[in-house]
Amino acid sequence: MMFQENGDSNTNDFTNPSTFILLGLPGLDAAPVWISIPFCAMYIIANLGNFTILFIVEREPSLHGPIYSFLCMLAVTDMVLSTSILPKMLSIFWFNSREIDFSACLTQMYFILSFSVIESGIFVAMTLDRYVAICDPLRHSIFLTSSLVAKIGLAVVLRGIMLILPYPILARQ
């Protein structure tokens, strides 16, 4: 989506704008409701699918292994990512709410970037799990205990939070 700074064109302060005006998708201003229907449907289906994964893994004791823990982490990450993007996009399409506060824009940027990094870290953790399961299957349950999976998950989350934290701080200055 394109954006421009809100304010007088002669007194633009690009160091600390108060709000941005989101212009949307150029050339598609005539049918915003029709564009929003697929996005809304994908958002609902994605969240429903992720809740289903979380519910099934929680209810079935045989699915309490390391790979399913990583799969649950991935489902939660996907829900946070889609929730940080779609509500503002849908408010633009449905309610013509085109303004976004500078702090809200930085917050949205932070969540998108940090949870993308967290998602890639979870994929790396899942490949570690599959590597151990294939190369040393007899020691898989000894090596990848639930406490180690929790530590790996915490490390992945801290990595995502700390790696992206300087971006909004520097952008705010």
Rank of each mutant, 00 (worst) to 15 (best):
R59Y: 07
P61T: 09
L63E: 05
L63V: 09
F70S: 00
C72T: 09
L74Y: 13
A75Q: 00
V76Q: 07
D78W: 05
M79F: 05
M79G: 04
L81H: 02
L81I: 02
L81P: 02
S82E: 04
T83V: 03
T83R: 01
S84M: 08
I85L: 13
I85W: 05
P87F: 02
K88N: 10
M89S: 15
L90E: 10
I92M: 15
N96A: 12
N96K: 14
S97Y: 14
R98L: 11
R98C: 08
I100W: 01
D101W: 14
F102L: 06
F102V: 06
S103C: 11
A104M: 14
T107Y: 11
Q108M: 15
M109V: 14
Y110I: 04
Y110L: 07
S114K: 03
F115S: 01
F115Q: 04
S116D: 06
S116R: 05
S116H: 10
V117H: 02
E119Y: 12
S120G: 15
I122S: 00
I122Y: 03
V124C: 09
A125D: 03
M126A: 15
M126H: 04
L128P: 02
L128R: 04
R130W: 06
Y131E: 06
I134W: 08
I134A: 10
C135S: 15
C135P: 00
C135H: 13
P137E: 03
P137T: 01
H140S: 09
F143R: 04
L144T: 00
T145P: 03
T145K: 07
S146K: 12
S147K: 15
